[in-house]
Structure formats: structure tokens, C-alpha cells
Amino acid sequence: MKILVLGGTQFVSWYFVKRFLENGNDVITLNRGTKKGVHGHKIEEIYANRHNAEELNTALEKIEADYIIDVSGYTVSDVKNSYEAVKNKNIEGYIFISSSAVYKESEIFPICEDFSVGENKFWGKYGTNKLEAETFLIDKFKQNEFPAVILRPPYIYGEGNNIYREGFIFDRLKEEKTVVIPNKGKTLIQFIHIEDLFQTVCKIIERKIKGEIFNVGNYEGITFKGWVESCMNAFGKETKIIELDYEKYKYNPRDFFPFYDYQYYLDIRKISDIYTPQISMKEGLEKSLKWYLENEDKVMKRNHYYENSEKIIK
């Protein structure tokens, strides 16, 4: 099978390319070429700016693929450009990696696919842009059966994660530093390991699913405190945890912690008929730790987490 990955150099798309190759697929990547050759010489790399419709059309004019995995689409213009470039090609599926940020804040959990979508005060334009992209693709499915599928993951973690989340806690543990968490640490969030996301995509391809929207994620949410303790278990080391009433001390959670103080988790019953997650949080964080210790320089560290944590502790 020939897979075209829109992206290919950052966390999710990098991992997908790696795993598709390991599964014996032919892989093509399309990105701006800022990180050339990250997968060696096993793949065909196309360099183009997908924001430029003419440039994208030219780049994809002679490219044929069975499936397109869109990891780098963030706006409706992104997916419109890619749609126009491939709409006359005989593709079997177009899988768009969206986000749970498309949902409005909710007091009802878990959040189902038919819950209210729109602006979320925590995610802002990121969520509404993803939603507009989703809407365009689903409309094209309804109009002419363009074979789009939408996946809405929560926080993604695992090997290759260049976002400073579990890496921040690993750094605190490595340096035997206290971890500061928002309030009592009871806010519930949800994750999916990158391998489980990849396997979900594989099952959608295997079953030739089209025109559907799926939440994806682990079965249950986990509290901030539970997540930090899980990072400790993976690292094999404990440290002190401070519970901070951040409003009292005029801090925002993202000043010292890698997540908004926003509680949510998704209902994944619909996707569970196709694939159920296999990677436990313990196993997933152990994989993350191994990769992080060998690739620390690839992570976009946020020094203010560290600096503000130290101020709070003092």
C-alpha cells in the first residue's frame, strides 16, 4: 500500500511514517522541507508549502497514493488546498487527525461525538480552525463521497513527543526537584499513546471506513496528580508534590505545569468497535522515558515551567 503523509517530521507524523515503513508500506511525505531526510532514504520526500494551492497542486500532480494521512492540517484552507490537489485521484481514504479541542467546555462527561462543538476558551482558534477543517471534509464526503475520516484525540504522548509534557516531569525527577500541581491535582484529563493512535488509523484503513468522526483515547481519564505519580512510577523515583492554589498566588496553571486546568475526557465507545487501546499508562510512560533520555535535545523545553516552579517552592 502507498501512504502519503502530510507532515512527516514532527511527533505524530514522524511516528506514523516510521511505523508505516516498519509495516512494509511505501511512504511519501509532504512538508516544507525544513527537516530533510529525517527518515533516511526509504521514503519519497516532497517539499511544498501546503498553504500555497498552486505549489501544492504542482507537487502532487504526478503523485498517486492509496491513503492520505493529514497530520499537518490546521485550517480550512489547509484541507481545501489538499482536497483540490487530490480530488480527482483514485484515493481510498483521507484520514484527518483533528483534536478534542473542537468541543465546547462541558460539565457532562464523557464527551460524545455529538456534543456541542465550537469555541473553547482554553483552545481558542486552534479548536475552531480544526472544526472548520473537519466540516469542510465531511461536507465533501456528503456531496461526492470524498473518503474522509476524522479522528479527535485528547493529549497524545509517547516516543517522539517533542512537546514538553512528560519530559518536564522527567526532568524534575532527574534533578530530584519538587513538582507543583494546580490546586489539589484532581482535574481529570485523558491521553492516548501514539502507538494506539497509529493502530486506530491502521484499523480504519483495514476496514475501509469513510465519512465518520471518531473520538479516540484511553478508556478513562486520569487526574493531574495521578499522571504525575504515573510519571514517577515509570521513572522509578518519587518526589514531593506541592498542591498550589494558583489563583490565590496569581499564577496560571501553564506558568508552572504543562496543562490547562481544564477537565475533560472523551467517550470512546464508537471507536472501540474498531480498535481498543492496548498501551497502559505505565507502559506508555516507560516508552516515553526511554525515548526522552536518548533524545532530550529534540524536545521544545519551556524554561518558565522550571523557573516558576522554583519561585513557588521558595
Rank of each mutant, 00 (worst) to 15 (best):
E229G: 00
D245I: 14
K237A: 08
N218W: 09
E220S: 15
E238Y: 10
T223S: 15
E220L: 12
T239E: 00
E229F: 03
F214R: 03
F235R: 01
N215R: 04
E238C: 06
E243K: 12
N233H: 06
F214N: 00
V216R: 03
K248Y: 15
Y251P: 02
M232S: 07
S230R: 04
Y249D: 13
Y246E: 00
G217W: 09
I241C: 08
Y219N: 15
G226V: 03
E247H: 13
T239K: 04
F214Y: 15
V228G: 01
E229L: 14
N215L: 08
K237V: 03
G217I: 05
E243I: 05
I241E: 10
Y251H: 10
G226Y: 01
F214T: 03
N215K: 04
E238F: 08
Y251K: 12
Y246F: 15
Y219L: 13
E247F: 13
F224T: 03
G226R: 06
N218L: 12
F235Q: 00
E220Q: 13
C231V: 03
K250H: 13
V228E: 01
V216D: 06
N218P: 12
K248E: 13
I241R: 12
A234I: 02
K225Q: 14
N215F: 00
E247M: 13
N218H: 14
D245P: 12
F224A: 00
G226P: 10
N215I: 08
G221Q: 08
E243R: 09
I241M: 10
E229I: 13
K225L: 13
F224M: 04
T223D: 13
Y249F: 14
W227F: 15
K240L: 12
I222Y: 12
K237H: 09
E220R: 09
E238P: 05
W227L: 11
V216K: 07
L244V: 09
G221N: 11
V228D: 03
Y246N: 01
E247D: 14
